[in-house]
Design a protein around this nucleic acid. Sequence first.
DNA 1: CTCTGTACTCAACGGCGTTA
DNA 2: TAACGCCGTTGAGTACAGAG
Length: 484
Amino acid sequence: MFCSSPCILLHSVQNIQTYFCKRVGSNLGHHKFLLIFGPNNKKVEIESNDVGASKSELHAAAVKTFGLGGSELILQLYDRDFSDYVDIEDGELFYGPAKLRVVKGQEQPATFPVTINNAEDSINAEISDSGSTVSQLDYTAGSDFLRDNSDFSLLTPNSPSPPPTPNAYSTPVSIEQPSTSSSADDPPSLPAAPLTSSLVSPHPTSPVSFHSGWITKFQIPVQPPTIESKLKSGGYTMNVAERSLFLDSIYKEVTEKYGIYYPSKAQYDEIITKLFVKYPSMKTPQDNMPVGNLKMLWKHRLQYKFQNFRKRVAFEIAAVQKKKLKVARKPKSAPESPAAPPQWDEEPPETEDDASIDGHICWLQDEKRKRQPDFRGVSQSMALTLADRRTWIISSPQTPSLADIKSKYPWLFDDIQLLTEMNRIQDGEVTFFNSLRAGLGRYASGLIKACKGKRAPHAFFMEATTEMEGYREEQKIKGIVNKQ
DNA sequence: CTCTGTACTCAACGGCGTTA
DNA sequence: TAACGCCGTTGAGTACAGAG
């Protein structure tokens, strides 16, 4: 399981960042480290007269903790930038919490097999032991528990744990792996921490498959000071808004930096592992709460965050749309083929009466005020009110003003809905959009000539030029492909 | 059959405007 | 200024369907 050569990991939650930062305040002179020596994992605190712990002080701590007197030790600090351990030098000062490894001299492994990061491995094991799906979520106290930190105490050891399910970590894994971090081009090096990354494979159903190796690079994003301090003390005092911000930051990091919108089960585990390694206090249960549940709790929070954000924020992302199409459900009572859009001179749909039309209009007006309107519903309601709207605009004794129309049907002043409205009115090939395009086509050359004549062409013209060039290139390529 | 993701839904929270 | 209510946002539960 662990490396054949004895080595020590002085292991911590923060690394290079705090390593280089000058510490100030009440913690001055106190530095916490976590030592891992093979299967052993010890947390130590070094009191130093200096602002940072010296190499000799760290060496002494390692010798004392593991009884390694007489051995020549190599101390290595985990460097986030390189995702690997780097030897520390005399004269340097180290600021806890920091992540260090100490290797016995002469016995440092030149190649794999690998030293496993024991702390993270144990966390993974705990996560896998209590693994469950979101739908199987059972925290005993229900949603209130998840909302109110004070209810953490409800999770007693007697609370039912979610049933174990197999996953990437549930079976013993040989760590003598061809590491994902070592390619043919890479010289053999000491394994990057966390080493569990090599256990992770892209989720089979994930539309994004290019994220191999992301685990070694992924780091819990830096938090605002208030959230950072609360996380360091276990995260229990975070309010809902802070917790949301924190989860947002992880979502953002994973999606924007790695393009992963569907983390696999193992990847969720890995994120939580990193979280708990970075903030060890979060592992500490309150009121005898099983630690496995704490991990499941954060994992599920993260899963919910991803689920809800995919639905509410990232619904336009190609990977999300692709996935939705793949698993698309048939609506319960949807007609086999969509009904033809109602024509303006038709009677209102039989399903609608005056009251329901008024209801649609009110709802549409409300929806326009929202920051995140239900666009699908808007289109449906606009379609259902088309006949009424056309009758009102065209046949009213006193033609409504633009202000009246805007007030009653604000969505008609939305560009997308305006275009859709035109398409509702016109049928077949003769749509508003096609007519507009045909019309513009007639004057395109003149418009382009006029724009080119300007000393400083407008931004939209430059944008359009770029678009056109791209389109021509695309057509060229398509032509070549078709010829083949 | 199990796992996973989506749709639909509800409830809590917090911001904001109104009113006494 | 405090109390109140409305409403948007967010987290989370449930049902269901597709994939393997």
